[in-house]
Design a protein around this nucleic acid. Structure first.
Lengths: 152, 152
DNA sequence: CTACCTGCAAAACGTTTGCAAGACG
DNA sequence: CGTCTTGCAAACGTTTTGCAGGTAG
């Protein structure tokens, strides 16, 4: 947590960008959440810090450029989450078509399977893969059982 | 091609929807392109057919509901492409971060690898996977070579 | 002290909607 | 004929931008 902040400060200094309360507030929300959030959700959590919506947008775009954050577009909405920062090199999103909930599939082995597969593609196609957006669509466990119980 | 049209007409009849020149025009663009297009790109190709932008949107949404087309969100923009219609049960998109080109990775074996992996997740997590959006980000072959040549 | 950053409000953008007119079956 | 569909323009929500003032380094 502290480590993230320190690392972030080095990055922006190296790029001649100034640190501000606002940028740090946005970053902190992302760190604490450690999962995908919409711009609005981020804004709601820090609007007491005297920050304008525009600044939230600007900060997120900056973080994206610096490789700190990542955008995940999903059916009209745009989610943001921390990228790299060591922990999660890749993970998979799952969206339930029935209840519209969006969750992470947080299974190390599965994630590694996907990373391995991405590398296979990289070599086979002669390109360089730096990142991957993987979203599975279907029915979550709960909805699946509920729908099956109704025998339709 | 003709087969698609016939199939489509059966589907919409079954749902009590009326066929029109406009809907068919949108569908034809998708069939001919057989790859991802933005709403604007679709509109440009058929605006001579006397069609309004709103109708393109409405048709695409309808096609999505009927399971004919599929939306692929990518960094702010929304792409559409034909779904199912037999041929491609899943395929992977690749976006080059340098030239911004978006291409399909059209390799049967690779696609099958991903489908197998998706099924593995399905069983492991107890959910039902009906569809998947997979987009890889990185450098395409051309840009990779170009950038390497510059030795930076 | 200078360059960068911010908030605000206005503008731009993509998408959706209400409505009256039109077309399909 | 009735219902579904269309084009248009207005409405809408989200994202971006210009600008004058503020702040970090």
């Amino acid at each position: 947590m502290e480590k993230y902040l320190t690392w972030y400060k080095e990055i922006i200094k190296k790029n001649g960008i100034k640190n501000t309360v606002q940028k740090e507030a946005v970053l902190n929300v992302l760190i604490k959440a450690s999962s995908h959030l919409t711009v609005e959700e981020i804004y709601q959590q820090i609007k007491d810090v005297k920050i304008g919506l525009a600044t939230v947008y600007r900060s997120l775009k900056l973080f994206e450029d610096l490789g700190i954050a990542k955008e995940i577009p999903m059916g009209g909405a745009r989610y943001y989450e921390l990228k790299l920062f060591g922990k999660k090199p890749l993970h998979i999103h799952f969206k339930c078509m029935n209840c519209n909930a969006m969750t992470d599939i947080d299974d190390t082995e599965t994630n590694l399977d996907y990373i391995r597969l991405n590398q296979k593609v990289e070599h086979k196609m002669g390109l360089e893969v730096n990142d991957a957006n993987i979203t599975l669509l279907g029915l979550c466990k709960e909805c699946r059982e509920k729908l099956n119980a109704q025998t339709k």
